[in-house]
């Protein structure tokens, strides 16, 4: 009796030891890089660099000052922060409601025996593997008034009047549109490999059944393919949601934040505030606010997605 019990106990313990050892590093990483870092960030958000004549260059405690400054910035008519929020949301919408559906459509088309499908897949993925610095530089050359090809073509087509006087990338009306255009142009192919993989795994029988029922091309896409790759789609959707708080390289490289902050995003605001003020505290404050606001948004999105795309077993 006792012997069997002993074996059972130690088997359970063996399992526990295994789990503990294996998970040790990831959990430690989490504790350091998430818990500690975020606690430190919270602490930093209450500090500021001491610039008084008696200072020795240290950070001192300033209470809610940084937060007050952010809120004042939100309400001031000259702050870039409201624009940053607007732009971040625009880019999110572009990512999740334009690029992702297009990606699904394209992946599906390529799957449907489109000629040159393999070549297309590689070419479409090019922007994701080429340095963004170079891509944005090329993009700005193409739209330059002296060097670029766009302006002469537009003039040839008789559309010369829409060329902005200040140039495409720095005109208040067109700057953000150019950022969106760039993200569109460079982003279509980014999700295609994953989506192609997911589509491939849909059993052929299900699709044939649909075709026999006479669903047609788009019907098949809508009723069969999308629900069955639902888990992939929702994960990609979640990845896309993080864009709100993290995208900054595209606007920074293309327009430097745009004329008077037209193309700012939340993350760009953080990065620039660190660079401009030379101190880390404002960036930390904005980061904390983002985390506070972002987490519930993400949690709600996750719930919604689970309702829309339940997991199917096949």
């Amino acid at each position: 009796m006792k012997k069997i019990q002993a074996i059972t106990l130690s088997a359970k313990w063996k399992e526990r030891i295994f789990l503990l050892t294996m998970m040790a590093i990831p959990v430690a990483h989490f504790l350091v890089f998430f818990v500690y870092i975020n606690l430190d960030t919270v602490a930093l958000s209450f500090q500021s660099l001491d610039r008084s004549p008696s200072s020795s260059g240290e950070y001192i405690f300033v209470g809610w000052q940084n937060y007050r400054e952010i809120f004042r910035g939100l309400t001031s008519p000259y702050s870039v922060f409201t624009k940053a929020i607007r732009n971040s949301l625009l880019l999110f919408a572009l990512n999740n409601f334009v690029l992702l559906p297009l990606g699904i459509l394209f992946a599906y088309l390529l799957h449907r025996k489109m000629p040159l499908a393999g070549a297309f897949r590689v070419i479409f993925y090019l922007p994701s593997i080429v340095s963004i610095v170079v891509l944005t530089m090329l993009f700005s050359f193409v739209f330059d008034s002296t060097n670029g090809i766009i302006n002469p073509v537009l003039e040839r087509l008789g559309l010369g009047h829409i060329i902005p006087e200040d140039g495409w990338l720095r005109s208040r009306d067109t700057a953000m549109k150019m950022v969106l255009l760039y993200c569109f142009w460079a982003g279509i192919g980014g999700n295609i490999p994953l989506l192609s993989g997911a589509i491939q795994r849909i059993p052929e029988e299900l699709r044939e059944a649909g075709r026999l029922d006479g669903v047609g091309f788009f019907g098949e896409l809508w009723h069969i393919v999308i629900p069955l790759i639902g888990t992939t789609v929702s994960t990609l959707y979640m990845f896309g949601t993080t864009v709100i708080f993290t995208i900054f390289l595209q606007p920074k490289l293309l327009t430097g934040g745009g004329p008077d902050g037209e193309t700012y995003t939340i993350a760009l605001y953080i990065v620039e505030s660190i660079r401009e003020s030379g101190e880390l505290t404002m960036g930390a404050t904005v980061g904390i606010l983002c985390a506070l606001i972002g987490t519930p948004i993400v949690a709600i999105t996750k719930r919604l997605l689970e309702k829309i795309f339940p997991t199917y077993e096949y």
């Binding site: 870092i37 430190d40 880390l280 930390a284 980061g287 985390a291 987490t295 993400v298």
Partner: peptide
Amino acid sequence: VVLMMIPSTGSTAAIYKM
């Protein structure tokens, strides 16, 4: 899932310091 979503840009400063 949640961890992935929280923006890390804000913690740049703290990571740098650490």
